[in-house]
């Protein structure tokens, strides 16, 4: 049986953004195939958050071109589509959960579907329940965000993006500040999501174990550039660039210590 052709879902060329910010992105190139996960590692301040914000129009880009499924949405640093319509396809899961405190978890998962996808309340609630089960917060649906634990909050936050079925999820440290069990539950949910729905991920994480589990390829982002890209099978030992090698060995030895 012939393998299905691998298609480029997201292509980024020469992206530059974040002038005056802590993390600057410059001359950044990337290709993401449908249904794959790219792990992004690097020192703090290497530009990971800037990259995600620039790709979703939450921060203006200064230069660069980008295509989603062959359609150009960024031309010489200018967004050529409305930012909210872009974010339906490329959705950022921010590092800090931002659930609405006056709504239950269920309503928090339903509202974006009703507003962004114009779904009916019934449809939105049904989908919310399905995804809540997937990430293991189905028992907390009627609770308010202030009544659930940090790990559950993080999962609800992730579920709120998952219910929208974007083509690419940008995950910014979604497993930081949670216990190992929650982290594993989140990882399993993401794994299931990719296999079941063919969603692609860009995954920023300090946790090499999660990168190894989810990513197909790993990028070392350094000073705003995509310095080296290796298959996950070679991660973290397989970087050839000296900067990347130093970073990876520092991280690994720190974990072992």
């Amino acid at each position: 049986m012939a393998e299905a052709p691998v298609t480029t879902l997201l292509r980024v060329k020469g992206l530059k953004a974040g002038y005056g910010e802590r993390g600057i992105i410059s001359a950044f190139d990337l290709e993401v195939e449908r249904g794959t996960c790219i792990g992004i590692v690097g020192y703090s301040g290497c530009g990971k958050t800037t990259l995600f914000k620039a790709l979703t129009g939450l921060m203006p880009a200064e230069a660069g071109d980008a295509w989603l499924d062959g359609d150009q949405f960024l031309t010489s640093g200018k967004l050529t589509v409305q930012p909210w319509s872009l974010r339906r396809h490329i959705t950022l899961v921010t590092q800090q959960p931002g659930l609405l405190p006056h709504k239950s978890v269920l309503e928090n998962l339903a509202l974006p579907q009703e507003l962004v996808l114009q779904k009916s309340k019934e449809e939105a609630h049904a989908e919310a329940r399905t995804v809540a089960k997937l990430v293991g917060i189905d028992a907390e649906l009627n609770a308010f965000p202030s009544e659930i634990s940090g790990g559950q909050l993080q999962r609800a936050h992730l579920a709120r993006a998952m219910v929208l079925h974007p083509e690419i999820l940008l995950l910014d440290e979604v497993t930081s500040n949670v216990d190992p069990r929650t982290s594993e539950a989140i990882t399993d949910a993401l794994d299931a999501l990719r296999d079941g729905r063919g969603i692609s991920f860009l995954l920023v994480s300090h946790d090499f174990a999660i990168v190894r589990k989810l990513a197909d390829r790993v990028i070392f982002l350094h000073k705003g550039r995509n310095l080296e890209e290796i298959p996950v099978t070679e991660f973290p030992g397989g970087f050839r660039d000296p900067e990347a090698q130093t970073f990876a060995s520092e991280r690994v030895s720190r974990r072992e210590r």
Binding site: T56, L58, P83, W84, S85, R87, R88, T91, L92, V93, T94, Q96, P97, G98, L99, P112, L115, V116, H157, R160, A161, L164
Partner: peptide
């Protein structure tokens, strides 16, 4: 920020 990121 997260509402914007979801496409609001």
């Amino acid at each position: 920020l997260s509402a914007r990121a979801l496409g609001f």
